[in-house]
């Protein structure tokens, strides 16, 4: 297992050194959220009502943007070949890389969400719920996204394709993420949607690395 954390550590260090990828994702998040009021009209009541949905959807898109690179750079520079010859099963290699993506991209996006909530007139009471559901829900974003990244590694038009493949898989996370926020703000019991959101993330942590490893294996032949 120690190879696992070595790999996570390397990917995080690379993310910090390169910096650009996270900056681009955060910038994209900001721009998409800022564009929506321009398109929908600046009705603050309307914006505050749909703010959780906007923030979640824009977060999914921003995370998608950076997912394409998860395996690509290791594939292009030959690192993936060497990673495969290590003592770590490929399933754990993909898990490590998805975990590094979650820490380096999904979590910062989730932390930026409340700041963007100000632009959308989101009620202050909703902020803890927003960040909490995002932290709980985003592992599914990174780990299911890894499947798309692995499947499109050698495909033409990889960037667009990954969105088509992965966004439908994000539907449960999106629905329960929003449901959990509404439950926290409203009279409903918050436990069921939050527990289901957790279950989806845990399921994704199992399914994602398995499928991504299978996809990588076929492409490395």
């Amino acid at each position: 297992m120690s190879g696992f954390f070595t790999l996570v550590g390397r990917d995080l260090r690379l993310a910090v050194r390169q910096g650009g990828a996270l900056g681009t994702a955060l910038g994209f998040y900001l721009v998409v959220v800022a564009m929506l009021p321009l398109g929908l009209g600046a009705d603050l009541k309307l914006l505050s009502r749909i703010a959780p949905g906007i923030l979640w959807i824009a977060l999914l898109l921003s995370a998608l943007l950076s997912l394409g690179r998860v395996f690509e750079s290791d594939y292009e520079d030959g690192s993936l070949d060497v990673l495969t010859t290590g003592p770590l099963p490929l399933e754990l290699v993909t898990a490590a890389k998805a975990l590094a993506h979650w820490i380096s991209t999904s979590v910062p996006l989730a932390l930026l969400a409340p700041v963007l909530g100000i632009l959308l007139n989101l009620e202050l009471v909703a902020y803890p719920a927003l960040v909490a559901t995002m932290i709980i829900g985003t592992p599914a974003v990174s780990f299911l996204g890894a499947i798309g990244a692995a499947l499109t590694l050698t495909a033409r038009r990889g960037g667009l394709l990954i969105a088509l493949l992965v966004l439908p898989l994000y539907v449960p996370t999106l629905i329960f993420g929003i449901a959990a926020i509404s439950a926290m703000l409203g009279p409903d019991d918050v436990a069921p949607p939050l527990l289901i959101l957790t279950a989806i993330s845990l399921g994704a942590i199992v399914l994602g690395p398995l499928a991504a490893a299978a996809a990588l294996r076929t492409q490395m032949q």
Binding site: S2, G3, F5, T6, L7, G9, L83, T85, P87
Partner: peptide, 11 residues
């Protein structure tokens, strides 16, 4: 990195 990874040793 490669040494630690390939040896499975992060010490």
């Amino acid at each position: 990195f490669w040494g630690a990874y390939l040896n499975g040793d992060s010490s």
